[in-house]
Simulated scan of single mutants.
Amino acid sequence: MGEQILQYEDDAKLLHARLDEAGEALKWAHAESKAAAARVVELEGSCKAAEAAAKALEAEKAALEHSISKAASESMDLDGTVTEARKEVDRLQKEVAGLRVENEGMAKKLAQHKEEDDWETKSAVSALSGDSEMSSVGPDTCGVGLRITEVAPYRVRGCLAGGPAHRTGEIRPGDVLLSVDGVSVAPLSIVEVRKLIVGAAGSRTEMKFQRSRGDERKTLNVVMSRS
């Protein structure tokens, strides 16, 4: 009986020891459970942070795509503006070129008018000295004393008395001057015709005239010396 009691006591001690071990294990399990719960909370926080970061990246991506689209649109607008600017530059260049041509034409006309005015002035001076047809336009150049109209066809208005044209006895008022030394005067201005007529004193010139009598046409070749 005593041995059985001792056996019970040993079993009870062993059971208490196992209960103590179980209690320690339970405490450890509770601690691990709390740590696991803390890690779960931490992971949940990390997941939420990751989700927030992902949303921020999506928003940044959307903003970047919008910026790219806007830049592309602005680039297209800029290309259109550049194209329009180039067209405007081309138009202005053509306009400037046209104005230059027009100015050159006006300059030529002004030069011609000035030249004609100079000739008219010299003609007026010559008229005051008794030679209204510029038979002498300078110290070394002379004409033939021939008076003609100011526009083509250049008709003879008269000859200066005693001048080369008058001395030939062949030229009459109404005769049409056709050429001077082989050069047709029909397309020339009066200034150009006068330049053909005048020359060095004593030089010879050949003029062709046409005389009309009704339906009859007669051509005259007159050679004379300038003086």
Rank of each mutant, 00 (worst) to 15 (best):
M76T: 12
L110R: 11
G98Q: 11
E133W: 04
S123F: 01
A59E: 14
V82Y: 15
Q112I: 01
R204F: 01
Q93F: 02
Q7D: 14
C47K: 04
D118Y: 07
E32A: 09
L6M: 12
R211Y: 12
M1I: 12
D10I: 14
R217A: 09
L92N: 12
K94H: 10
A37C: 05
G145T: 01
V96N: 13
K34F: 10
L92F: 09
K61G: 09
L220N: 08
Q7S: 13
R204C: 08
R147L: 04
L6E: 03
S225E: 13
V137N: 08
A49C: 00
V191W: 02
G2R: 08
K13Q: 12
S136R: 05
Y154G: 05
Q210T: 07
S123G: 08
A53K: 02
L177S: 03
S179Y: 07
S135P: 01
A25L: 12
M207K: 12
K13S: 09
G145Q: 04
V223I: 14
T81F: 14
F209I: 08
L64C: 14
E206F: 03
E74S: 14
L178H: 12
D11W: 08
R86D: 11
M1D: 10
D118P: 00
V183M: 12
D20K: 10
R204E: 10
E9N: 08
R217P: 02
E44V: 00
A111Y: 06
E3N: 11
Q4M: 13
V176Q: 14
V198P: 00
T149E: 10
L92R: 15
R155M: 08
V185Q: 09
G130R: 02
S129Y: 00
A29H: 02
K27I: 04
K94W: 05
R157G: 07
A54K: 07
E88S: 10
A63L: 13
A12D: 03
E32Y: 07
P139W: 01
L110G: 04
E150V: 05
D131W: 01
L188G: 05
S203E: 13
G162Y: 00
L78T: 15
K218P: 02
S132F: 05
R226W: 05
E44K: 04
G143H: 03
G130E: 06
G214T: 08
H30M: 11
D117Y: 01
C159V: 04
E3Y: 15
P187R: 04
S69L: 15
A22N: 11
E102H: 14
G182K: 13
H16Y: 13
A107S: 12
A36F: 06
D215N: 15
T141S: 10
V191D: 00
H113C: 06
A36C: 11
S123E: 04
H113N: 06
R157H: 06
P153S: 10
G163Q: 02
I171G: 05
E51M: 06
V176S: 02
S123C: 03
G130A: 01
V185D: 06
K87S: 13
R91C: 09
K94S: 09
A38L: 10
D10R: 15
E102W: 13
A25Q: 13
E44I: 00
A63I: 05
K109H: 00
A63C: 13
K55F: 08
V137A: 09
H166I: 00
A63D: 15
A165Y: 03
G169Q: 02
S136N: 01
